[in-house]
Nucleic acid binder design. Structure first.
Lengths: 200, 200, 200, 200
DNA sequence: GATGAATGAGTCTTCATTCAT
DNA sequence: CATGAATGAAGACTCATTCAT
């Protein structure tokens, strides 16, 4: 890795942690350069401004999602799965993403949503990407006859996304449980169960 | 209403709208006094500082919740309700709160959560108040034998809260549907159904 | 004069002197507020930025020219004047403008011309205003038969303007002669003579 | 030409164009290295700092003047010339210098004069050189009895210089006429005529 | 000789807050 | 009570210069 790439990553890493810990507005460029142990001007060699650092992070988060969720079951595996297994797989995948990086999760689910301005579109892009998957899976379920035809897709997708996001945030970002990774299975099962059959 | 109270309310009203529209940090005192058509110094007659205005709003939102959700069914009515009716009633109450005031909803569900600092505790107070009710209702359901004893209360409460919050935000704050109030019934039923029996 | 107007004028006055003494780029906002004995923020209550202060000055200089050169001879007086007297009057008027305010002259003739950017158009507006007058007077002379019909107006106007500006700059801005006012007459006569009949 | 000299000239060339186009302060080292297609550090192998590049240019301009105006008429030729022919020759020489290099002219006549600081003395050196010639020629004319003994040398030199500079700037730098070179003769004649016999 | 990543002193600009009227 | 002119601490950003490779 070249020196330049190393420096850029170093900035992004520390910025991510700081944005997560103290929010976008309360994080100063001074904090970032102090933590990253670099000069003030160095930041501006790699990023247009403070906002650009944040948007770059969101962009990276988006790409990471594409990568980390790209391993889909083969058609064979798919055929062997029950509807509930499939649901469980999808949920586990999403939870895994949020469980993997505490700061990333905190930024996506807590820090960015209320920022407004130029961040709005970036965070909505991520949110849309995540809810789209749910919508598609619901459609799939409807085609297979496992889900009621009359289901309000938009509504249900948001319902599931909301539940999933809050659970992720509380288990992985807020409490920063070390054992989160281990729990993934258990949590995924609980979510699956609730979504499948409700509380009664 | 005295002149003083009028002025204070005037400030709060415009601050609420502005905070909702452009966020806490991007809303300037200058914006507030321009919109409220008052002098710069006047703000500081009623509020210690910019943060105090925001915290006052959150405090008000908290009290409004107490009031707007205070009408609980009598013991008699309760006895006549099915478990699902009760759930539906609760959900409708919550949705009604979020449906009533777009800006309030936006601030509670979108603007405040990521602010950090002194706002953290205030917004958590509101969030806790809302999830507590769900937890209590779940406990009630368990006692009555309608809900499985082994249910993870904390987890389930967060699951339901997340779903409820996101649905509220999307239907009442984001889309600002005029027909929201009319839809309340329908949406509440959908939420109830999903929570009760899941998607399958 | 209201407090606000007083403060604004105070800023402009000190800015004018500083821009004249050290140039636009070498004059810092810090210099201006130190000299004007005001707070840093005060500058920005009255001017958008550093550039705006400078452009405001140029705007004022332009208006001052309009005023200070507005006293034109009556038709009667005009009729009684020889062509050379008229020329002399015009030149004296221009010299008077440049003699009146050393810093203003320095800014118009020395500081602004090379600034480029947004200043370009402002300074050209002033220059154009000054050369236009010369051009018009030349036309007048041609109509009256005192000046050769074939005279290249554009060229001659620039020739005269250049001579006039440099003489003004050297006598009034550069040397900051106290006796400048007294000399006005003499200098005007010399200029008139040279323009009228040349050096031979 | 050695590699080193080539690189240095390359820098000076692009710097000249950029200084002329956007001024000294608005031209960044970054602009120069981008245009000259060299590395950032290379500049500092040849010049102490940004100021040094500019001063080097002025130094070069001064030397170029010495060279380009060095071809003086022989004593024989001089004897055969009328006073006016001599004047015309001198003016043509000056105009030729300014007509030859648009950017050079712009820097000498427009960019440098207002810079102040360390540039002041350099640009005055050039200006002085140019006005000195005029003064000397005037003295020569007085000695020969063609010019009035009482003529204010300083004043007249500045008058002529101002006229000459502005005309040069407008014909050669501002309008960037392609046909400038061809016009040289005509313009020189016009200047000579005006200086000799005035407008009436 | 050439390079370009790193630097930080220097400036502008913002904006919440104060206070005399 | 209301005002708005004045304030200055705080922070973002620039850009000439350095230096290890």
């Amino acid at each position: 890795m070249s020196r330049a790439v190393e420096t850029k990553n170093n900035i992004l890493e520390h910025a991510k942690r700081l944005y997560s810990q103290t929010g976008y507005f309360d994080t100063q460029i001074s904090d970032i350069i102090r933590e990253a142990k670099i000069g003030r001007g160095t930041v501006y060699q790699y990023f247009k401004n403070k906002e650009d650092i944040f948007l770059s992070l969101l962009e990276i988060f988006y790409k990471e999602w594409e990568q980390e969720s790209s391993i889909t079951p083969s058609l064979e595996e798919l055929a062997a799965m029950t509807e509930k297994d499939y649901l469980n797989h999808r949920i586990q995948q999403t939870l895994a993403y949020f469980a993997k990086d505490t700061d990333r999760t905190n930024i996506i689910l807590r820090i960015s949503p209320g920022l407004g301005g130029d961040f709005e579109s970036s965070i909505k892009k991520i949110e849309k990407r995540l809810t789209n998957i749910i919508t598609n899976d619901l459609k799939f379920g409807i085609r297979n006859g496992h889900i009621d035809k009359e289901t309000d897709l938009d509504f249900t997708a948001n319902f599931i996304a909301g539940a999933l996001f809050r659970v992720s945030y509380f288990y992985f970002a807020r409490n920063k449980r070390q054992k989160a990774a281990r729990d993934l299975d258990v949590i995924a099962k609980k979510v699956t169960a609730l979504i499948s059959s409700g509380i009664f």
